[in-house]
Design a binder for these strands. Structure first.
Lengths: 245, 245
DNA sequence: CGTTTCAATATGTATATACATAATCGCCAT
DNA sequence: ATGGCGATTATGTATATACATATTGAAACG
């Protein structure tokens, strides 16, 4: 079987296809944690490609934490999890795609209203004013990955009032429009309430990671957002070096 | 120049070396944003390796967002590492006292041993060596506030072998002695297992926030520590201002 | 019966090679 | 000038191959 040269004239590369195939099976639960996935040579036969190509894909999955590789034993499914650097702008699409999964976004609710007391507390807003409240879900493959609850201060971003946020998620939309000057994250663990449990398709009471982010632009509150992730699906990573001016 | 086979008999792999060399130059500012880094074929000559090896390293850097690759033009350094160290180093005593509560520390277990495979994985330690494993509890008033599991690399901090850590917690002890050059935090939510539940006096299965920190001093792993907090007791806060970029 | 040794096996890393693809440069004809 | 076109160039992806390394299971040994 010589077959020199490139195959990838069609759609995505083989590398990508292997990656997403396997991620999909793991995330969907078809291959449960602990399950031994096929050996490199088996996959190379199955996909009709070289072991190197399979190796690169599996190595990437291992680095992403989806599988664990043991010499002589094979590769095993770990508990699915993803990582995001705390310091980086949260873009869930990029996170999901880094796992080799299809990203899908869904806007569940949208309401324009005069800020409630709770809204004002979240935004640290002194006076009442119009806000846009949004509720969204982010999917990785078929599975819900994150739940988003957001309040946007329309006094700071009036053009958001005309945006439906059906095609684009509010995060990327805002980043392209509003230069933020300061942000604050609050990170904590909570038990899923019924609403969140339903949205994320997990059991009520299951542990979740909540990341709340509040953003200011030139002293004016812009938005408050709360992301909720199922515990197994998410790890935040922050890396620093102290000595850097 | 045939030179078949592997070179990497010494320490780290070439792949790793190329990766860290280039990251280092970018992070340090030696290669400013917009700077064109050497072509793949130049680097392969410089490191005396094949283009494939360089390609894999550069692809990884591109995926990490450090560089941008343009066909026919070369690879360019992207926006400056905007990361200003953000998450504050936890000193649990200070946190507890800021709440107006009495702080108490308790060392539950201490074991000097040759690093297990798990220890080495936690520390990202290549070779086996002596480590000190500790388990402690931190109290706020009468209630347990945080559970601490720590592994100290005795090769990096030999004087820790003689410390009992009965009167002083390992965190403050290490900070005063070892200048850390790099740290990585991993933050996630978990359900309390029986051991943790007993230590924190909460129900098994209750959501907990886990903060793991790994510290290096001049490339040498120093310590890995895992703090577990009962969900209600703890919120992490990180604040940033985007640096010029 | 326990221990030591060794071969088999799966992954890890590197090589050389081949061809695809995209961007750019310079040449040429209009 | 200038617009198109092919040659050049750097990266992208895949191949086949080679040897290293870690682990395991079974055979050999004390």
């Amino acid at each position: 079987m010589s077959m020199t040269g490139t195959i990838g004239t069609e759609g995505g590369s083989l590398h990508q296809r292997i990656l997403s195939d396997i991620s999909e099976r793991i995330m969907s639960g078809a291959w449960a944690p602990g399950h031994r996935i096929p050996f490199e040579h088996e996959l190379s036969t199955q996909y009709n490609c070289s072991r190197m190509t399979v190796n690169k894909a599996l190595s990437q999955l291992a680095k992403a934490g989806l599988i664990e590789r043991r010499r002589r034993s094979g590769s095993f499914v770990r508990r699915p999890q993803s990582q995001a650097a705390v310091l980086e702008i949260h873009d869930i699409r990029i996170e999901v795609e880094a796992l080799g999964l299809a990203y899908r976004y869904e806007r569940a609710a949208r309401q324009k209203r005069l800020s409630s007391a709770e809204d004002r507390a979240l935004l640290e807003l002194g006076v009442a004013g119009p806000v846009l409240a949004l509720e969204c879900r982010h999917f990785a493959g078929e599975r819900p990955f994150a739940h988003e609850q957001r309040v946007i201060n329309l006094a700071a971003v009036p053009e958001a009032a005309d945006e439906e946020f059906l095609a684009i998620a509010p995060g990327p939309w805002l980043i392209g429009r509003v230069p933020w000057s300061e942000a604050e994250h609050r990170i904590r663990a909570v038990a899923a309430d019924r609403h969140i449990a339903a949205a994320l398709d997990i059991a009520a009471g299951a542990p979740c990671l909540v990341v709340e982010r509040r953003t200011w632009s030139a002293e004016h509150p812009v938005t408050h957002v709360r992301f909720t992730y199922a515990a197994e699906s998410h790890t935040l990573v922050a890396r620093f070096t102290p000595s850097k001016g």
